[in-house]
Write a protein that binds this DNA or RNA. Sequence first.
DNA 1: CCGAGAAACTTACAACTAGAACTATTAAAG
DNA 2: CTTTAATAGTTCTAGTTGTAAGTTTCTCGG
Lengths: 147, 147
Amino acid sequence: MTSSHEGSATDAEAQAIVERNLCGLVNALSRQIEQHVRERAVALNLTAPQATALRELGGPLTMRELADRMACEPSNATFVIDRLEEQGLVERRPHPRDRRAKQLVLTPEGITLRERLLEILMEGSPMAGFTQEEQITLQHLLRRALS
Amino acid sequence: MTSSHEGSATDAEAQAIVERNLCGLVNALSRQIEQHVRERAVALNLTAPQATALRELGGPLTMRELADRMACEPSNATFVIDRLEEQGLVERRPHPRDRRAKQLVLTPEGITLRERLLEILMEGSPMAGFTQEEQITLQHLLRRALS
DNA sequence: CCGAGAAACTTACAACTAGAACTATTAAAG
DNA sequence: CTTTAATAGTTCTAGTTGTAAGTTTCTCGG
């Protein structure tokens, strides 16, 4: 069951395999979460990253803040916001206190669409089956892994 | 700290925010793991997905099995294996028992490169800081979410 | 004040990714 | 045995992603 084709299983190698499985699980779950978003977002004519961005835009954000929340590079946020702006869902305004930055603000259409999106995303989340205590321990462990 | 710009925080909305944070953590950790692989793999002239594929090829696999282990679509596995085959690291052989399937086998160069890769990937894994007990609970929780 | 360095954002590019459509083969039902 | 459905793999396309390079603006030490 556990990669029997590997060489002799010293402690170090066994530990490496456990870590690999753990990473694989995190990765698989991440894909499943993205898939969940993608399946729901298509009903609103949004792609998964577009939906994620819209979800995070509960209040005004800079590009950098959005990129951090989406766990992606700023260049990628630029790409996604370009699409949302083309659809008239979000607006790039000059930042009031920093002329380098942009302030992302939802348009009225963006606000109503976001409300619908939040409702849709709530149904059948992959994390729904956990008790509150389990969610806390999981949150704690994940945060620690994030260095 | 916790999205104070959201509307009135009913229990349902608060729960939704917790779930969102949890998904965000999983996603962020997944990106960090991929980044870790990418940074190490570049020393071997491999991209992150190529390194992941090579890592999983400890024994012969079909394309479908590899895609499952990489948590991606088969079409994507085709793309990655094309690159590894171009580099002479892996070989597509006819499957002995199923003429539809291919059997992926590492070449001698692939085997030696994989050994070096495993050594390199072991250093400073994002999951290294956990005790064995923590790893087990984490594994348990992640598996349940995957269902 | 001013120059060096850092930060925010964008652009261009190369790579990865999922989904749909397609062929070839197998398995299952009749 | 034959028709039907399911599976393995590939190709094609549109969309996403990270890196590197470049511009503008801010910050801070002198």
